[in-house]
Design a protein around this nucleic acid. Sequence first.
DNA 1: CCGTATCCCTTAAGATACTG
DNA 2: CAGTATCTTAAGGGATACGG
Lengths: 108, 108
Amino acid sequence: MPLISSCEVDTALELITGKWKPSILLALINGDTLRFSELKRSLPNISQKILTAQLRDLEEQDIIIRTIYPEVPPRVDYRLSEYGKTLIPVLETMNAWGIQHAERMRQK
Amino acid sequence: MPLISSCEVDTALELITGKWKPSILLALINGDTLRFSELKRSLPNISQKILTAQLRDLEEQDIIIRTIYPEVPPRVDYRLSEYGKTLIPVLETMNAWGIQHAERMRQK
DNA sequence: CCGTATCCCTTAAGATACTG
DNA sequence: CAGTATCTTAAGGGATACGG
């Protein structure tokens, strides 16, 4: 019996693949709660449409929580859900791997 | 300073994203050394073209090693490189997360 | 047996403009 | 401020047929 099953790896992978999702998650890990405009500033090259789409994905997967404040001007902020926080160790492992092996990447 | 940097996470992510790459890596983790036809059997729904392409990607990234035996009929096998094996803990972490959270997925 | 070549399709991503 | 709407492009994936 396999120690690792493809389907479970894919489960995790689905949640964090998307060109900008790691960056968004990291911003929320490091920044706790961020407004739409703050996220946009953290990701200088993303268009509003894409940022909205990725946030909607993450929200639908219950990884992040979107809070709308009924104010003028409008205010919306995003934070990791408790469920989303369980992904932190996964991201940390990938990060640690990346740091250890970044050298090889740079040679290419 | 952030504990996790997006760019390092992406480094790891790049290597394992691709619809079939986790499955290929798992097959090689569990099966050690496999021939093309054995891999194809492990991944019943993949086309030859795609399998070849994904294997070439992994080979180019030095994650797997491709060995050609000058025989008739041709024989080629694939195995993880030492570098590729460093990804195992990453996959294991993702797998563990997936198992723990598969329940939530099934409810959706 | 282990591939390539060709052609097609879907999807993600992006630029840009507009709105409550 | 925080989004939609519209249009376009690029890349990944796939079915099928052929080749050394």
